[in-house]
Amino acid sequence: MVQWEGVMPAVTTKFTADDQLDLVMFEKNIRAQLEAGVHGIILGGTLGEASTLTREEKEVLIKTSLSIVEGQVPVIINIAEQSTSDAIAVAQHAEAVGAEGLMLLPPMRYKATDFETVTYFKAIANSTSLPIMIYNNPVDYKIEVTLEMFDALTECENIQAIKESTRDITNIIRLKNRFGDRFKVFTGVDTLGLESLVIGADGWVAGLVCAYPAETVAIYELVKAGKIEEAMKIYSWFIPLLELDISPQLVQNIKLAEVATGIGTEHVRAPRLPLHGAERARVIGVIDKAMQNRPTLPDYKNLRTIA
């Protein structure tokens, strides 16, 4: 059973120089996430370069993650398919190979109506027993899941959480006012992480956590313990790095940050290419400055968390 709370990294997929899965570096990163205290692992999102992965590679990543985490945290797979039948097939296959939850995007490429989107979500939810997080990101994916649409989705008991990425953090309050604890709400925008937690988000589906797991979890734990000022000190340092997540090249950016912290490589899968020229220099400059001023963290793992 997934406890929908805490920090859940949308992990990157590690590749070798010859474009194979780099399971050695993948394991090193996942173990760093676990050591930092993350609360779940999400595979196959945008950061995971899911659109370039084969079904076989996704299966390898699920099974490898399950072997590494050994039940410490749930392993969740993202679903972003072109058709309802494909999405159902991926969901059922993920359940069969051991995934413990799903993160679900609206239909890709086709801009579905509200009714079509709700029907799509219900069809997938009814095809599996796995708990589901709905990913609401109209900025990038052009479909907003409205409060009325979530009303219709309450009949699916396994739809249990929302990744809220509208960029309007007050939507967290609207969701909480409307649904109480029926849906757990996660912020999905790194640069709104602390603010979202302060106003009531249950968790954070994070990106820069891939390179900086301890700093991300520390912010979450400090906020939940009411230590906002301490959390702000880390967050203020973190913001220039977090801004690397809100870019079309977020994968390349975050992989460069993983190189800096020793838990990743910058290998990406074409058509993505490593950053070059002035933009590469700019991103490395942001990372280098942050590394020179990396904060000393408090003993965040032993804080008493408040509800």
Rank of each mutant, 00 (worst) to 15 (best):
W237N: 03
E215S: 10
E229R: 10
V251K: 01
L242K: 04
A231P: 12
I219L: 11
E243K: 09
D245Y: 09
S236W: 04
P248A: 05
K224G: 02
E229I: 06
I219Y: 05
L241N: 13
L222M: 12
M232F: 13
L222R: 05
I228Y: 14
L241E: 05
L250C: 11
D245N: 13
T216G: 09
F238L: 03
K233N: 12
Q249P: 00
Q249N: 14
L222V: 02
E221P: 00
V223D: 02
T216W: 01
T216R: 03
E215W: 07
G226M: 04
F238G: 04
E221N: 15
L242Q: 12
E221I: 04
L242A: 15
Q252T: 03
A225W: 05
K227M: 05
I228S: 07
E230I: 05
W237F: 09
L222C: 10
A225P: 10
Y235H: 13
F238D: 06
E215A: 13
A225L: 02
T216H: 03
S236Y: 06
I228W: 03
E229G: 01
E229Y: 06
L242N: 03
V251T: 14
E221K: 15
L244W: 00
K227L: 15
K233P: 02
K233H: 08
Q252E: 15
Y235A: 11
I254S: 00
P240S: 07
L241S: 06
N253Q: 10
S247H: 10
E243Y: 01
E229L: 10
L241H: 12
M232I: 05
Y235E: 08
A218F: 08
A225R: 08
E229M: 07
V217M: 08
L222T: 12
V217Y: 08
K233W: 09
N253V: 02
P248V: 14
S247A: 04
F238Y: 15
V217T: 11
D245W: 02
L250W: 02
I219H: 01
Y220T: 02
V223L: 12
E215Q: 15
K233Q: 15
L250Q: 06
Q252G: 00
I254L: 05
I246V: 06
L244R: 01
A225K: 12
K233V: 14
K227G: 08
L250D: 01
P248T: 07
V223A: 08
L244C: 01
K227C: 04
I239T: 15
V217W: 14
M232C: 07
I246T: 08
I246F: 07
P248F: 12
L222A: 11
E229T: 08
E215N: 11
A225S: 15
I246S: 10
I254W: 00
M232G: 03
L244Y: 03
I239S: 03
I234C: 09
I239D: 04
Y235C: 02
G226L: 01
F238E: 05
V223E: 07
F238Q: 11
V217G: 08
P240M: 11
V251F: 07
K227Y: 13
K224T: 04
P240E: 11
V217I: 09
S236K: 11
I239M: 15
D245A: 14
I234D: 06
P248S: 12
